[in-house]
Simulated scan of single mutants.
Amino acid sequence: MTYFEGFVVPVPKANKDAYRKHATEFAPMVQEFGVARMVETWGDDVADGKVTDFKKAVNATDDEDVVFSWFEYPDKNARNAANEKMMSDPRMEEMGANMPFDGKRMIMGGFEAIVEEGAGGGGYTDGFVVPVPEGKRDAYRELAAKMAGVFRQHGATRVIESIADDVQHGKVTDFYRAVKAEDGETVVFSFIEWPDKAARDNAWKAIMADETMKPDGDMPFDGKRMFWGGFEPILDTAKRETAHA
């Protein structure tokens, strides 16, 4: 199944255009390395949470927004080969010296798809980061597969659930800290692609009002530490164009 490199990035609001330019210039290079698709989405409907949220995940300040981003690869071997090329390419050092964000607070990691429904593409994305007990992987996958079908029925173009495979602990921020992961827990990087924001909003209203969608028993994760948000695309190499959100 598809392998994902997931990113959450704090970016100054004033640097939105600079970030889009940086990503647009970076895209051809990563595609040269082997990235099949690169997507950059800018925080649009990202609420503050009581326990965790996207902003806390990267220690975002009041003058910063959050970018939810990912690279797609056909498999882990392709991802590893691409990373080796990136590490040895001198252009990467130049790109790294001119980043319009604080790279020390960016979180990233490699995730293996466990649910993959739909062909992808769209005008709006819901992003999720979820702490899942290792012993409940199968239960989570079963629930996620069920929910993916529901989202697709309500108009989602694609639903991805990917679980941590190569996610390192960072000095300042990381995916584990982001969800306050406990011993014996892993992390899921998940997203839903929609045709546009209106379709997403209408779908969620219908899903939340559906009595049959209420859980029958205990959830296979701690919902209080899960966080999510809505994001507008600013770059999608599958479309070969940059969105001007």
Rank of each mutant, 00 (worst) to 15 (best):
Val172Ala: 10
Arg152Lys: 15
Val46Asp: 06
His244Phe: 13
Ile114Met: 11
Tyr3Cys: 09
Ser162Glu: 05
Gly34Cys: 09
Glu161Asn: 14
Phe189Cys: 04
Phe221Val: 01
Ala206Thr: 12
Phe231Lys: 09
Ala243Val: 12
Ala119Asn: 10
Lys136Trp: 05
Glu72Ala: 10
Arg177Ile: 05
Gly135Ala: 15
Arg105Asp: 05
Asp65His: 10
His22Tyr: 15
Ala18Leu: 13
Met99Ile: 12
Val129Gly: 00
Gly184Met: 03
Met95His: 14
Ala81Asp: 14
Lys239Ser: 13
Val58Thr: 09
Met99Cys: 07
Ala18Gln: 13
Ala81Thr: 14
Gly217Phe: 00
Arg91Thr: 03
Phe128Leu: 06
Glu93Asp: 12
Arg91Glu: 05
Arg79Asn: 13
Glu142Asp: 14
Val11Tyr: 09
Lys56Asp: 03
Met38Ser: 14
Trp204Met: 15
His154Phe: 11
Gly109Thr: 01
Lys224His: 07
Asp62Phe: 04
Val129Ala: 02
Gln31Cys: 09
Pro90His: 04
Val67Asp: 08
Gly149Trp: 04
Tyr73Glu: 02
Asp45Arg: 15
Met87Gly: 14
Gly155Arg: 00
Ile160Glu: 06
Arg225Met: 02
Phe128Gly: 00
Ser190Val: 05
His169Arg: 15
Arg152Phe: 08
Arg152Cys: 04
Gly170Glu: 01
Ala119Leu: 13
Asp48Met: 10
Leu235Phe: 08
Gly122Lys: 06
Pro74Tyr: 08
Arg91Asn: 09
Val172Ile: 15
Asn80Phe: 12
Val159Ile: 12
Lys56Trp: 02
Arg177Leu: 07
Asn202His: 05
Trp228Leu: 10
Pro233Tyr: 08
Met108Pro: 00
Ala203Gly: 01
Thr125Cys: 09
Met95Ile: 11
Met1Glu: 02
Trp70Ala: 04
Val9Ala: 06
Ala156Pro: 00
Pro131Cys: 04
Ile107Thr: 04
Gly109Glu: 05
Gly184Cys: 02
Asn59Ser: 15
Pro215Val: 00
Met92Leu: 12
Ile192Val: 14
Phe189Gln: 00
Pro133His: 02
Lys104Ile: 12
Ala243Cys: 06
Asp65Ile: 03
Lys205Val: 11
Val46Trp: 07
His154Asp: 03
Arg158Met: 08
Trp194Thr: 07
Pro100Ala: 07
Gly155Val: 03
Asp236Pro: 00
Met106Asn: 09
Thr41Asp: 07
Arg20Ala: 14
Phe128Asp: 00
Phe227Lys: 00
Phe111Glu: 05
Asp165Cys: 06
Gly170Asp: 01
Phe68Val: 03
Gly149Lys: 07
Arg79Asp: 09
Met86Lys: 13
Thr41Met: 06
Trp228Ser: 11
Glu40Met: 15
Ala18Phe: 11
Ala178His: 02
Asp222Ala: 05
Arg158Trp: 07
Thr212Leu: 01
Met92Tyr: 09
Gly6Val: 06
Phe71His: 14
Ala181Lys: 02
Tyr3Asp: 05
Tyr176Glu: 03
Ala119Lys: 13
Thr212Asp: 06
Val8Ser: 05
Val58Gly: 02
Met86Tyr: 10
Val115Tyr: 03
Ala27Asp: 10
Val39Ile: 14
Lys180Gln: 13
Ala113His: 06
Met219Glu: 10
Ala203Phe: 01
Ile207His: 01
Ala145Glu: 11
Thr237Cys: 10
Ala178Phe: 06
Pro90Ile: 08
Asp45Gly: 11
Met108Glu: 10
Met147Leu: 15
Asp138Pro: 04
Gly149Asn: 08
Arg240Ser: 15
Glu84Gly: 12
